[in-house]
Design a protein around this nucleic acid. Sequence first.
DNA 1: GCTGCTAACTAAATCGTTAAAGACACCCGC
DNA 2: GCGGGTGTCTTTAACGATTTAGTTAGCAGC
Lengths: 350, 350
Amino acid sequence: MCPPRRTTLKDLARELGVSTATVSNAFNRPDQLSPRLRERILGEAKRLGYRGPDAKARSLRTGRSRIIAVILAESLTYSINDAVASELLSGIAEVLDAHGHTLLLLSGRQHISQAPGSSSIADGFIAYGLMPPSLMVSADLPAQRPLVAVDFSPAGYPTVHIDNEPSSYRVARHALSTPARRVAIVSLRLTEAPCNGRITEEHELLPAERSITRSRLAGFHQALEERGFAPEDVPMWNIEENTYEMCAPVLEEILDLPDAERPDLLLCMSDRIALTALTLAEQRGLRVPEDLRLTGFDGIAEGQYRAPRLTTVRQDSVEKGRMAARMILGLAPSESTLLHTELVIGDSCP
Amino acid sequence: MCPPRRTTLKDLARELGVSTATVSNAFNRPDQLSPRLRERILGEAKRLGYRGPDAKARSLRTGRSRIIAVILAESLTYSINDAVASELLSGIAEVLDAHGHTLLLLSGRQHISQAPGSSSIADGFIAYGLMPPSLMVSADLPAQRPLVAVDFSPAGYPTVHIDNEPSSYRVARHALSTPARRVAIVSLRLTEAPCNGRITEEHELLPAERSITRSRLAGFHQALEERGFAPEDVPMWNIEENTYEMCAPVLEEILDLPDAERPDLLLCMSDRIALTALTLAEQRGLRVPEDLRLTGFDGIAEGQYRAPRLTTVRQDSVEKGRMAARMILGLAPSESTLLHTELVIGDSCP
DNA sequence: GCTGCTAACTAAATCGTTAAAGACACCCGC
DNA sequence: GCGGGTGTCTTTAACGATTTAGTTAGCAGC
């Protein structure tokens, strides 16, 4: 009486005078016992406050937990607030939810530092945008369990991604179809060491093959060359983290350049950057697109609901998440998948 | 050789000729064995590809999983995209992360329909804004395990919340300090049955004591009365879900009323509603605040980075999340906590 | 030489389930 | 009347760890 220990399946069985297997079956395989007995068991369970088989024990025994872990490159705090990561997560959640699975959030950093085995609860993993420094996938994850990568391609794992280079080429080509005098690029994480500001020759750039930002940059450069710009003469700024707080100081630096030096076309590598530029430009009385044209990348909702609407490349991050989730659940073949992107011509660069 | 079974602690022990207890200690209690032997064990573990104790087995044995589940009222898809829920989650994630815990996302709906025991993996629960229909907390959750509620108050559990009524009173009083001719209220989920549009007498309102929207409404009404408005004469519209997509049609309906009927002051129950109104008003050539003044509620980032800045009540949802997480981890006393709010006077209603 | 203490390790029970195999009765058809 | 199938329930052995209560050896002190 006194011990407030959780009632277990065994208690229930003893109380009813049946075997534990039968009680287990009452919960898991109704067809394995008579309806009458099942009723009795379920009734007694309710009476004793037994809430069904313990998930910990069940997952140990069966080897499956119905939990899928998402490993996020950045801190959870950042990822949850980032529009693209959010959309991805919501696509993942949608599919998992529909199939009775739940979502465990792991940050890449944490995963490395903590006991690595702690993640062994999950039945499978979806890894998002891990960068070289935290490239723990191959080293740290059990090769045994399924993993789907999103937006990067670790060897030997299926990937869901988009065609970054052609996509950014298209938006840049569009932007450059109207004459521009002074073009500048505002990029996401391009340097090996942290850097928030202008990129000079001293900076060591990330290795091209591992970074989606490098691919996007290549697309920009190709379009620039076609229009007669020398890519090395086009100034670049780097944004360390895709948040308003990080973008703002850099963009202020750019927008506050003397009139003769201030760019009249900004190729931004994310919508967040472009939206920040938009807000700051408005505060300075600069008209978009008359005084400053700008393009984004991602196609997040905020950029489309706002005036002027952003010119950007729309990628369907929700679908990306759905796809990854389907693959990890075995509902779709585990083959690397390339999703389409779409050029969206808004008012920020008509 | 052939069976590709995962190596276990037992395999490792056999291989090394030591007991399983010792191997376990090598991972969990370094002080319980000689450094030399520990080295040897860890080395052999790496060689055999053993990644540390299995989380499933460990959590069964110890009873703790270092997982905290967040139960969200709405679908995960919605919650992840909602600015307020995101901030809450990011606050929770921040604290959990710092203390080596991970975050499991559960949606209220799923939790009810699925096997209820499936959540028994988590060490504790944070429940967010569950509404009466899905008030599964008391019924469905093991009373044994800790639960902290956010933004609602199930009997017997600690809560983290804000002072909704006084807060909305303050912003409404401010808004009404400048003369307004036609006031309207745009509310979140106020009706028992789903409804997206004008609220008439026929609608059954949610019970006041369980709904934060009812509290906010009470604040609005009090301010209105003080200014000589009869609350029952102030028209109300209801928004079913706090998204742009749901807000837009309702606000279009309001903004497209003939000039003589169109409100010149909109008391919105969320920033999302107010921001949608802002965008749609701009599209219609209505000037804010000259032709239309509006107030929000929440103080989300988007509303402050945008011109005109939103007049609103700022609540610190991130801190709310941190607080809830600290309570569930036992880092803060488990007592109901009231967080402060702040009136933010922006340009949308100076 | 005996007691007592510590450090280093082991044996065995346990956590709460599930699953494979078996037991037992009952009914069917020939 | 007997082989065989079916329906219902039980026995038993895992699943992979942690933990309690030892056991042993080594050394100090008197």
